[in-house]
Design a protein around this nucleic acid. Structure first.
Lengths: 340, 340
DNA sequence: TTGTAGGCGTTATCAA
DNA sequence: TTGATAACGCCTACAA
């Protein structure tokens, strides 16, 4: 028993016109709800539409209208990050909300291999979308090249590496990191270290820089351990390493909440207490933060707002508004809870 | 300083043809790498393409080719679920992998409101995709109606409510739930309860049914507490309730790993130990499972494979192959760890 | 208020 | 090997 039920050809405006005995022009008017259509014609056409099961072919419409009412949301992340990053989902939802309000369809394109990169580049070039929101671009990214070559209205979430004259929305990772580190210092901790992650990316490097800023003369490179990704497991190993290097450590800035959660685990397994023995702070204010015990003191990353602002920025470009190049930085309040 | 750099009109095949002094037909052949083009013509055209910055308009191509090489991946979930469900991401990646191999573009459409539903329905009808993969359809879902009205090649992930004669790929929630409950029973637990979640969905209802099956005569409705979603916080409250109803409970089947993780927290806060006092098992084998302490005994849900199989199923339909209606059920091995 | 016809950017058929 | 030319399905002046 197969599903081979003759896939019948889709009805076109022409079919409707024939069925209703009225010209295609008028059918088109009815479909698009325009004025100047007689009641008689309208009902006849509506009947015909129902009868032949007509549904407009948007691709054809786009071709003639030269626009698609769609915006691409491009996520370029390796598996593990895409699945674990607590922010991407919120950014996506925020962007979708704004786009949806403006009656634009968000089309999410996932890049997970070089083949994907090429195909997405083609897709973008193909005129399927009127604009693009790009999350976590890489340096020397073909996508970036395509976008600027086409001068497709686009906005980046996070500072695109090596690109300064493009609109982007992000946060001040460095300043935020410095702020929460200072706050941690103010609680009287003397030996504070950092589990730095993702140093190959702006966010990671900036958070480390902020940490360094805040420590000033007290900065001790031995108290910084580097891990590859913003991951729970990286937090565990990172913290173990830190403890090995400096058993008397009493404060830790983890590069993200997930890392902090892992660190908590390592501290617990070492028989130490938080915040008693060690004060620890994270970054993101993701669901990890409230779920840990004790709950994490952290930096709030306004992921939903990032998505919304990004969407609004491309929408503005689409409208033809002036858009300021360079970054829009959103606020990142410190959320002080129990872990420090 | 605005970004108002005259968005110049995109070059078309026609422009290239004029520039190269050759007909559009030949240009098209070059673009599509066909044979029977003289070297001279080819290089002339390639130069012209580079000169005018030509990039094919895929929308136009699709119109005439009557296909798009794209498949929609439709996620219909409320915010919190979409962000927290550990499976969706893996399903998406699995589907993308298969689609990518077949040189299809996956376009992910997120439905987050009624407006979204309508727009996605339009998008699907619009001829932008050749097929669709639908995750977590609702009963009486407009999307489902559109898909079947269009008879667009489609496959569901999970059993679509009230629909039996459509292809879908899923797992045997009921059997799996019964299996792990039995396994828990075999460890000698006498008072075992369940934190049942998402009973308004097939997966949730089936897991409860499986639990009931396994318990047989020993089933005690007082030991089942219902929570709305597969969430950590639901696990915390659910477990507290269970403990309140039956302080001597010594076994728990949580409807998902996230729920189990929450239950662990509630058990800890009650001063009880796992697996000493209470044995607990989960469902999903998501990242929660390995992250808990003790690590969770659970059912492995093959999310990546679900995505791949789903993609292969629509790809098969696209090829015109016979596709068996009804479900393909994937294996769900028990992963026995430390929590029971 | 309605019909006609041209064009959107490609591909594909068929002569040349 | 190449060039016309007709679709593809739709919108939109323009004319009636």
């Amino acid at each position: 028993m197969g599903s081979t039920s003759q896939r019948r050809k889709r009805a076109t405006i022409h079919d409707v016109a024939v069925e209703a005995g009225i010209s295609r022009g008028t059918v088109s008017r009815v479909v698009n709800g325009e004025r100047y259509v007689s009641e008689a014609a309208r009902t006849a056409i509506e009947d015909a539409i129902a009868k032949v099961g007509y549904v407009p072919n948007t691709a054809a419409r786009n071709l003639v209208m030269q626009k698609t009412q769609a915006v691409g949301f491009i996520v370029h992340e390796p598996h593990s990050l895409f699945l674990n990053d607590p922010n991407i989902g919120e950014i996506l939802l925020g962007a979708n909300a704004s786009l949806s309000d403006a009656d634009y369809q968000m089309v999410c394109l996932v890049i997970d291999s070089d083949r994907d990169t090429d195909r997405v580049a083609r897709y973008l070039s193909g005129g399927f979308v009127d604009g693009a929101i790009i999350v976590s671009a890489r340096k020397n990214d073909p996508i970036t090249r395509v976008v600027s070559g086409l001068d497709l209205p686009a906005v980046f979430v996070g500072h695109p590496p090596e690109l300064d004259d493009v609109p982007f929305v992000g946060i001040d990772n460095r300043g935020s990191a410095a702020a929460i580190t200072s706050r941690l210092l103010e609680t009287g901790r003397r030996r504070v270290g950092m589990i730095a992650a993702a140093l190959d990316r702006d966010s990671g490097a900036d958070r480390l820089a902020g940490f360094t800023d805040a420590l000033g003369d007290h900065f001790d490179p031995r108290l910084v351990v580097e891990v590859p990704l913003y991951e729970y497991s990286a937090g565990v190993t990172g913290m173990r390493e830190l403890l090995a290097r400096e058993p008397n450590i009493d404060g830790v800035f983890a590069a993200s909440d997930a890392v902090a959660a892992g660190a908590l685990e390592a501290i617990r397994e070492a028989g130490l207490s938080v915040p008693g023995d060690i004060g620890i702070v994270g970054f993101d204010d993701s669901s990890w933060a409230a779920r840990c015990s004790p709950q994490l003191s952290t930096i709030h990353q306004p992921a939903g707002s990032l998505g919304r602002r990004a969407a609004e920025t491309v929408l503005a470009q689409l409208r033809g508004d002036e858009v300021k190049l360079g970054g829009i930085l959103l606020d990142t309040p410190i959320i002080w809870r129990d872990s420090a």
